[in-house]
């Protein structure tokens, strides 16, 4: 079972995946200190599922590509391992099934997917709503404990914005 890191050991991962109609999925992971200072950033190249994959995976395609294929790869590649991961999409939560690190969705205006009581556990930290897979509901308490060092008025989702912008910049450069 995961435990809460403290003080300087706390390195948070902010993971997001963007989906583009013509280029598929692309993910980015920003590892920061508790104060938001960047330590490492990793992003993937776009993953474009073919027609057969789209048909045969059906509705599970998104969660598979985001949570397993992209997010897991990013976690493996990053040199500075985060002690907790915050994501902005419910589809990425599946990552938790493959790793030991606590993962939670930080609900923002841009969060995709609708949490439901059957699958997700919820916790409020300051003004932020956090969701985890029901099977890993203890992650929420661990993450909330780690986040105690962040001032209540801080925008917890801000690093996700940076991650998103960095992904778009990377795409622009690669185009």
């Amino acid at each position: 079972m995961a435990t809460a890191a403290t003080g300087k050991d706390i390195k948070l991962g902010f993971l997001t995946v963007i989906e583009m109609a013509d280029r598929g999925f692309m993910g980015g992971l920003l590892v920061t200190t508790l104060t938001g200072r960047p330590l490492e950033f990793q992003c993937t190249t776009p993953v474009q599922p073919n027609k057969t994959q789209q048909i045969l995976y059906g509705t599970t395609l998104g969660p598979f590509i985001k949570g397993e294929l992209i997010a897991k790869t990013l976690l493996e590649r990053v040199q500075i391992k985060p002690v907790a991961i915050l994501v902005d999409q419910l589809d990425i939560l599946g990552l938790r099934n493959h790793i030991e690190t606590p993962v939670a969705v930080l609900k923002t205006d841009d969060t995709t997917g609708k949490p439901n009581d059957a699958e997700h556990a919820k916790r409020t930290h300051n003004r932020n709503e956090l969701y985890a897979l029901k099977a890993f509901s203890e992650d929420l308490a661990i993450i909330a404990e780690m986040l105690k060092g962040i001032p209540a008025e801080a925008d917890l989702g801000e690093p996700l914005y940076r991650t998103n912008e960095a992904l778009r910049e990377t795409l622009k450069t690669a185009a």
Partner: peptide, 14 residues
């Protein structure tokens, strides 16, 4: 077969 190619990554260290 349900196979996806290997996902490539790019990183920046601070």
């Amino acid at each position: 077969k349900p196979m996806f190619g290997k996902v490539k990554t790019f990183g920046v260290n601070f």
